[in-house]
Write a protein that binds this DNA or RNA. Structure first.
Lengths: 145, 145
DNA sequence: CCAAACTGGTTTCATTTGTAACCATCGAGA
DNA sequence: TCTCGATGGTTACAAATGAAACCAGTTTGG
């Protein structure tokens, strides 16, 4: 009978791996900053780009729009971001970090880099390169459909 | 100010990629067999190993034990698996697919292989090798702590 | 032999998530 | 200009998830 080897089935391995990494990493920002994953992504997006709309955030991070909506609402409640209505299109809001939000972002960035660094130093140079280019290749393949 | 480039931040890319792949793949078994992801994993584990306990299933697939418990309950409800109490330890149950469960498994395996095949043919030989060895390296790194 | 700690597995409850419906606004075309 | 379909974003409700409590059975140490 034909069997599927889960240990070598890529979609499964990939998910399990990403889930483990993401869970580990989420401890970092959840412990230190009390953020959920969608909130972390929102903070990161805004910190990186300065200002974004909810739709843009959703595109960048592949989050469902309700996730974005809730994350934004929560960060606003904490006064980590503000909304500014678009002048031409009144459906759109431009989101931007407040001083407090920026402070949190500045605190978060080194944590993230350290986490990634720790992860990558566990790999050899070759392995690291393989990982990075493999991910890039698959991303490319998916985006083309 | 120090910025984190999300597009090149590995944990983030990895998760986004795995999520996209997994979602795409889940359409396959959800459409054809009406399975959730935990149920699919349970079916796959049992199909591959013949018989497993709930704890073993959890270990193999990194599922929380409540997920396993529910998936098993649902597959049992469908009469796709049966439980046999262990002779020596009455807390333990050995799970095994029924004829119907096996039939579903046999239907599923080619779908999974086709999905993976389609995915991989979008990559060059080098890229494919990079992906696979990169994932393996990270898995290894994580398992060592 | 017995209490205490532990393990396999289930259940309960609160939280998170996704789907779908929704509201407001916008843009294209008759 | 008016209508209709699309779009940005929120909300309501149902389903999936995780933490913790739980039950039953097992092991260990005194």
């Amino acid at each position: 009978m034909e069997i599927l080897e889960l240990e070598s089935f890529l979609p499964y391995r990939l998910y399990r791996l990403a889930d483990a990494v993401s869970r580990e990493f989420s401890k970092v920002y959840s412990d230190r900053l009390g953020l959920s994953r969608p909130e972390w992504r929102t903070l990161s997006g805004l910190g990186q780009h300065g200002t974004m709309t909810a739709t843009e955030l959703g595109k960048q991070s592949a989050m469902h729009k309700t996730k974005v909506s809730r994350a934004v609402a929560e960060l606003e409640r904490r006064r980590w971001l503000t909304r500014t209505p678009d002048e031409n299109d009144r459906r759109v809001e431009h989101l931007m970090l407040t001083k407090a939000g920026l402070a949190a972002y500045r605190e978060m960035v080194p944590l993230a880099k350290a986490f990634e660094g720790d992860l990558l130093t566990k790999l050899s140079t070759d392995e690291r390169a393989a990982m990075v280019s493999g991910v890039a290749a698959l991303e490319g393949a998916l985006s083309k459909g």
